[in-house]
Every structure is written in C-alpha cells, then in structure tokens.
C-alpha cells in the first residue's frame, strides 16, 4: 500500500518576493547560472539584439504554456542512475531549478509534497 512518508527536510526555496533565487547567492552560482546570455555575435547591434529577444520571448511563452498544460498531470521523471519516479506535476520556479510535485512515488513510499532539483532530472514525460 502506498503510505505517505513524513517530511524530514525541504531544500531552501526561492526568496519570498517571487523573483526566484538571488543570482549572487552561493547556491545559485554553484548550481547553475541558468540564463543563457545573449550571444556575443549579436554584439552591440541593436537590430540583432531585438531579433534575439523576440526569439527568446516566443520560445519562453511556448515553454510556459507547456508548463501550464502540465499542471496536475501525472508525470514520469527519468533521473540519473536509471531511476524513474512518478508524480503529479505542480510547477517549476522561474529559473527551472526545481519542480514542485505532489504524491511522489519513491521506492520507499509516497511523498505527499516534494521539490525535485532539475539538475537530478534528465527528462520527464506526460500525456496531454
């Protein structure tokens, strides 16, 4: 039977003003400077920068809509060492460093609520 496991410790979340992690915090620097910087080729060229910014916004909007579509869906995470876990997807933070999930089916039991570090995930799938 699937039994909920008590929470031992949760990783520290983003700062409370919902702007994600402080980019100067050691944790952030250690994990990843996620935002992909503008390409050097674009240089100072105003028009190229604008094109790149447009591409970014189109891609990001699509990605965010995918995240929205994923909300409350059963998702299967493929992680390192051939570990596969199932959970109900909640959302991710703006830097895509963590995923919030519910009913995480781990090999030792079911965790009611959990945060999964995106660094530990290789891919995840769901059915729309």
């Amino acid at each position: 039977m699937a039994t909920p496991v008590p929470v031992l410790r949760l990783p520290k979340g983003p700062d409370p003003n919902s702007r994600g992690f402080d980019p100067n915090s050691p944790r952030y620097i250690a994990l990843c400077r996620t935002t992909v910087a503008t390409t050097e080729a674009a240089g100072g060229d105003e028009e190229e920068l604008q094109q790149e910014q447009h591409a970014r916004s189109v891609l990001r909007e699509r990605f965010l809509r995918c995240l929205l579509a994923m909300n409350n869906k059963k998702v299967r995470f493929n992680m390192h060492e051939n570990v596969t876990v199932e959970a109900t997807f909640g959302s991710s933070d703006i830097d895509v460093l963590n995923f919030q999930v519910s009913d995480l089916h781990t090999p030792i039991g079911v965790q009611k609520e959990a945060l999964i570090r995106s660094q530990d995930v290789i891919s995840f799938t769901f059915d729309a």
Binding site: V36, F63, A69, V96, F126, D127
Partner: peptide, 19 residues
C-alpha cells in the same frame, strides 16, 4: 526554454499527445 535550454518534444500516438 531560453532560460534552461530544455527541449519540449511531442509525439502523437493514436490521437493523443505524449510530451
């Protein structure tokens, strides 16, 4: 995703989408 460079792939299987 321009932030994490993650890719979203879709496959259509019998009129359902697997993402």
């Amino acid at each position: 995703d321009p932030v994490s460079a993650s890719l979203v792939l879709v496959n259509l299987v019998e009129s359902r989408a697997s993402v």
